[in-house]
């Protein structure tokens, strides 16, 4: 089964995303973050479980709710935080912000503001891994809402006919903004839809990082062997609303209470402790260390300069070789 080191890794990744996003929420409350935010709070176990099953050279494709993916994949939190604040030290030099938070050098293909637009890009990256013979794989995150877009069918189909090394990770948080998935999806699960494309699929508890991890490990093995794509539907829940000012009043109270009682950080912590991988004291030590890193990231971001206005004209094109 899963070794102790992995359990600690899962706890650490889950917690790291939690602390990062909590800090973001704090700073946001101080009006230091321009624009809007789609917080990852509540869904941490998905990013943690997926990225823990990947190598550094494997790729992930993120979404509009991407902070957690990027941080879990190993992004520099200082540059990530600075990007959210629109600073020149941000990973995208302040040109992308929350919805385009990306760190290419740790294997993030991109975060995108267009729901479902990441799936075709993941197909291409996986095709590239296959054609270049790298044995790397691509994990593509998308939400329940994205599974109703045309690219879902196109991309699942293409990945299956070409047996591409891609793992389709559905983060089913049951709402596309305010629209419940049961209004827009006739089947019991999104995973069922994979069957039509001959892609094996699984539904897992997306608040349990270990369960996510185990399903992804299986999918990654299949992908690396050249057996093609898999789909893992991770059922999870937003702790906050969809975006900046959404109190999410459209969600039934009992439902919200149920999910909030299933905190991803507590769940993986309990597992790790029960399986003897972690003590309360060690958990506390990890938390202190991570909190320090997150605080430093925030400080770095706040102290960083804004870009010069005329930098708006840079980075449209790559320079052509002479």
């Amino acid at each position: 089964m899963v070794d102790k080191k992995t359990l600690v890794d899962l706890y650490t990744r889950t917690l790291k995303v939690r602390l990062f996003e909590s800090k973001v929420w704090d700073i946001f409350g101080q009006n230091l973050i321009p624009g809007t935010l789609h917080l990852y709070l509540g869904q941490e176990a998905v990013a943690a479980g997926v990225t823990a099953a990947l190598k550094k050279t494997d790729w992930i494709q993120s979404t509009h709710r991407g902070h957690g993916h990027v941080v879990a994949k190993g992004a520099d939190m200082k540059r990530a935080m600075a990007e959210l604040l629109g600073k020149s030290t941000g990973s995208c030099k302040g040109k992308g912000g929350s919805m385009h938070i990306t760190q290419f050098d740790v294997g993030v293909l991109g975060a995108t503001g267009v729901v479902a637009s990441g799936l075709p890009i993941a197909v291409g990256a996986a095709l590239s891994c296959k054609m270049r013979g790298t044995k790397d794989v691509v994990a593509c995150f998308f939400g329940d809402g994205a599974s109703n877009n045309g690219t879902f069918g196109e991309s699942l189909n293409m990945s299956s006919i070409w047996k591409l090394p891609v793992i389709w990770v559905v983060e089913n948080n049951f709402y596309a903004m305010g629209t419940p998935i049961k209004w827009t999806c006739p089947s019991e699960s999104i995973a069922q839809r994979a069957e039509g494309y001959c892609i094996p699929s699984k539904v897992v508890d997306g608040n349990n990082a270990l369960e996510v991890y185990e399903a992804i490990v299986e999918a990654v093995e299949r992908a690396r062997k050249g057996d093609g794509p898999s789909l893992v539907e991770c059922r999870t829940y937003r702790m906050k609303g969809h975006s900046r000012f959404d109190p999410a009043k459209y969600r039934p109270k009992e439902e919200t209470e149920y999910w909030l009682s299933r905190d991803p950080v507590e769940i993986i912590k309990k597992i790790a402790i029960e399986q003897g991988a972690l003590t309360e004291k060690e958990a506390e030590k990890i938390e202190k260390k991570l909190q320090k890193e997150v605080d430093a990231a925030a400080e770095f971001a706040i102290k960083s300069e804004y870009p010069k206005p005329e930098e708006a004209l840079e980075d449209v094109f790559a320079e052509e070789a002479a």
């Binding site: 290419f104 293909l109 799936l119 075709p120 197909v123 990256a125 590239s128 270049r132 690219t151």
Partner: peptide, 15 residues
């Protein structure tokens, strides 16, 4: 859309 998107994904990863 996926032809074009796959071209994007392939292009940014070395093809």
């Amino acid at each position: 859309n996926t032809i074009a998107g796959a071209a994007v994904g392939a292009a940014i990863t070395g093809l």
